[in-house]
Amino acid sequence: MTTRLATYAATALLAATMLAGPACAYTVYVSNEKDNTVTLIDTATLEVIKTVDVGNRPRGITISLDGKHLFVCTSDDDTVQVYDAKTMELLYDLPSGPDPELFVLAPDGKHLYIANEDDALVTVVDVESRKMVAEIPVGVEPEGMGVSPDGKFVVNTSETTNMAHIIDTASHEIVENVLVDSRPRFAEFTPDGKELWVSSEIGGTVSVIDMATRQITTKVEFEIAGVAKDAIQPVGVRISKDGKKALVALGPSNRVAVVDTASKQVEKYLLVGQRVWQLAYTPDGKLGFSTNGNSNDVSVIDMETMEVTKSIPVGGLPWGVVVSPD
């Protein structure tokens, strides 16, 4: 009896594996800050695959270049947890410095740059040796982390100092501090590495910094009919794979702005869930995902039509999101 059941189970598993075949099926990983869980979503079916328990207060989330390892900032455990991205088995912890919130993986996949909110530091961790390589003092309440496509610069935003600190990854020295509007939350490079986009949550703007001069060239401003200016709070910023559009999550306004990267003009506002926080795209650039903290769901954005096509319920206070490379 037991043997027969096991056989059925094995067959079913095999069938499921074979069915999940299409090349465009990626996995979306969502960190749920309140529930201490990560939800996995299949991009082919747009259904939740499963929800797994992780460490305390998971926020920043990213994945290795080969898609094998999922990194989760478990802020209240003062560590970065590393999971097998397929089985979601906890493999080991990386040293992170206290209260890691957001991080970014170098383009070569070897180093993780972690913002330590409580200690005004950026911690550099070697992912392979699992050792802390450097600590770089930055401004008060470091949060956003971006890395240039060539890996030469990482950028940290400090929420109370109100700067984007541009750090040389070879020397681990700050090469420029760019003052932006209040409470900068996120830093994102354009795919050509020429521009750096930094969101300011309280200032209500996104500063576009020219990397050649390291000066702000434009500030993208937002205005939504019927929504109070105070509620328009830019947080997550992601530039599309082709570099043509930037999506900006606007927090409690419950909107994602679609910005034309050439003209820096807002083209439209997408109504998503409540308190929209972070964004991610599928590697083929076809779908976008936004985490909506107060409505406990993820909105799916069709990147061709720029329409919200679906809302997927996830865990409590979804915060970060990343999509597997394959």
């Binding site: 401004g139 008060v140 109370t160 100092t161």
Partner: peptide
């Protein structure tokens, strides 16, 4: 102290 952290850069 917060001002001085920022002040290092300014």
């Amino acid at each position: 102290e917060d001002n001085n952290t920022t002040g290092r850069f300014m």
